[in-house]
Design a protein around this nucleic acid. Sequence first.
DNA 1: TTTAATAAGTGTACTATCAACACTATCAAA
DNA 2: TTTGATAGTGTTGATAGTACACTTATTAAA
Lengths: 245, 245
Amino acid sequence: MSNKILNNYISVDCVIFGFDFEKLNVLVVDRTLIKDNGEIDFTDLTLTGNHIYEDETIVEAADRIIYDLTGLRNIYLEQFKTFAAPDRLKKENDRKWLLFNDRNPDNRIVSIGFFALLATQKVTLEWKGRNVRWMPVDEITELGFDHKLILSEALIAMRNKLIHEPIGFELLPEKFTLTQLQKVYEIILDTTFDKRNFRKKVARMKYLIPLDEKQKGVAHKPARLYMFSREVYEKTRKEILNFLV
Amino acid sequence: MSNKILNNYISVDCVIFGFDFEKLNVLVVDRTLIKDNGEIDFTDLTLTGNHIYEDETIVEAADRIIYDLTGLRNIYLEQFKTFAAPDRLKKENDRKWLLFNDRNPDNRIVSIGFFALLATQKVTLEWKGRNVRWMPVDEITELGFDHKLILSEALIAMRNKLIHEPIGFELLPEKFTLTQLQKVYEIILDTTFDKRNFRKKVARMKYLIPLDEKQKGVAHKPARLYMFSREVYEKTRKEILNFLV
DNA sequence: TTTAATAAGTGTACTATCAACACTATCAAA
DNA sequence: TTTGATAGTGTTGATAGTACACTTATTAAA
């Protein structure tokens, strides 16, 4: 084994999940390079990533990436894994990498993976005119670099978190109905729940606050709207931890 | 904000937790530098870390670090977080860092944090004669660099995992008693459990296999020994996931 | 060989949560 | 006013959680 230590380039890659009440999407960047004669030289899709600047923390870099692409701040964001196989960007991808970067392919690229959760409707994709678009998770068959792997691991981490902690509402507008919340869980965890049992469970979660407000303009009985209260959540969480989980 | 991108040095830092039936310990490295005249120039404790070599994956580097320090392979290991504040190793620690390293302090040091779980008795600390020793977690008040922060985050991640997944036995010898297992949970989660209820719960976990073997040489009724079966665990886990968690 | 010390091992009654299941209410649009 | 669509609601049986005290098997000391 070689004991040589590589130079390393750090990038923060964000898997931005967006829910549109029907399916789970990921924000992808369309990298298309046009030749001088107008033909497409090369095209692929990648996750959204960037470098960490000199005076930034990792989280600041991730926040900046989210802001650049969506125009949004204070989005739910979680660091889930770091990727750094020595040859992860080489082999088949070398040429693509060099097309878009001037870096030395001998260096190792280390990606710190984050996932973000938001409601697609919050985002105006025309923001800054980037080649960015939503793509349903289950239609993504290929991504540039090793971003397919990063997406898979993000999905695992996100599902795991969704099962154990109340983050489902992060994929919905601030005010949401219980049916919408149930759909978040059903679609992401690929299952179905009994409506009455789901509501009984929600009723026990004191941090989901029922509002005196209903849906408007729907062609059926309008549903009551709910909000998440972080304050109540932190309080009950502490109580639980005091008596131990 | 500066858009300058730093050079980055990647290190893999391992928080090696060891349980000795009574308390949770961490493997720390004693860094003591002696002056020419025999006086101690400087001393502190740090976590165990190292660089990633050219042809290694992150996990291989972590495995190598564990092996170098303990002589053990196939230890439970989990990547939990990556640390990279721009000034994390500077300020007060600059001198210490330079004493032990020839690197440029302007570069950013990125640490990929792992935690490992094992029974202290498995380790022969004389291995390779390193300045390495066990230290009880709750006696660690200070560590070099920002390793105290890394330790805190490792503890949070480890406790969280311990609550949600069966990893407690990783801190015990291959064959263990239920009282030993109960103690793992009680000490790490800082609580107590009722013995009968704990055993009822364990009885439901089919992957904890009772053996036809008992403790020997103890001055009380000898306890039955148990083993973890990964095979049974993977099977029941799949069944659970099929019907959804 | 008896006794003391120590931890192992075991059951029950009550409460809370889980899981399965079907009908009525309210709104917009036709 | 009828139709279509989704909201909203209770009960029962099974499973898991919680609180609680005594007997048993072994070694060491008397």
